[in-house]
Design a protein around this nucleic acid. Sequence first.
DNA 1: CTTACATCCTGATTGC
DNA 2: TGCAATCAGGATGTAA
Length: 277
Amino acid sequence: MPELPEVESLRRILARSAVGRTIERARVTERRLRQKVARDLAAGVEGRRILRLGRRAKYLIIELSDGAAMVVHLGMSGSLTHRGKDFDDAEFDPRHDHVEFALDDRTRLVYNDPRRFGLIRLVAPGGLGAAPELAALGPEPLGASFNAEYLARMARGRRAAIKNLIMDQRVVAGIGNIYASEILFRAGVRPTRRAAKITHKEIERIVAATAPILRAAIGSRGTTFRSYRDSDGRPGRFAERLMVYGRAGKPCQVCKSAIRSVTVGQRASFYCPRCQR
DNA sequence: CTTACATCCTGATTGC
DNA sequence: TGCAATCAGGATGTAA
């Protein structure tokens, strides 16, 4: 579910409410996530203050006062919600609320993940640089190093579809299934085209389309397609602005042609047959 | 190295 | 309406 814009929205919201707070108590009620939650996670974070929140690709990074950090990934269905002082214990969902951090202002951060594809890992002080989750990630799509020359180099010789290429976290980090479709629509490139056959002009358009879409989505606090909620429990508003994703059969907002859906690399993909070549 | 595919898991939606 | 099949915003390991 959550791609870069959703995680960045989460980071910004929590930066206002959770940074500076001390984790008084933590509890893990379900350790079986994609990667098993360490037994000593709770003990390792209790008493530490949340110093800073960072993001790399789709990972939220919670830096703690002793130099350690938590690396959090929401998988497909995860969420990290900040629950207020008035939060009632009865609202705790024992099925999917897996990890809870009680903060010193009597609020709590709760990690909920029905499908359990996410992960939370405590990284020892100074260990972020060597974190395996982050090691192979490509450049941030909002950064200067994600440019046409770079993407052209990555596309060279690749038989994979261009959509798969831009969803490959080693190529560019943070783009998932929704935004890949949206970026390619804006760039006028069909998702099924082989990466190596994309012209340089088209590569330039793909790169140029990326930041505006991601920034707009962040501005809307992300996309709620089915179930995503931000840390305040509110749906993201970008769903209203999707041009192709999830709109199979509906008219293109630019040319009125019916949006098509195809499977590319086992993922649903959407495009306009007229606007995208 | 690249690509194709199954797999982890539960819930919502679709189709009969 | 009920129930089973299908699909879901992600990432990884394995095999070819």
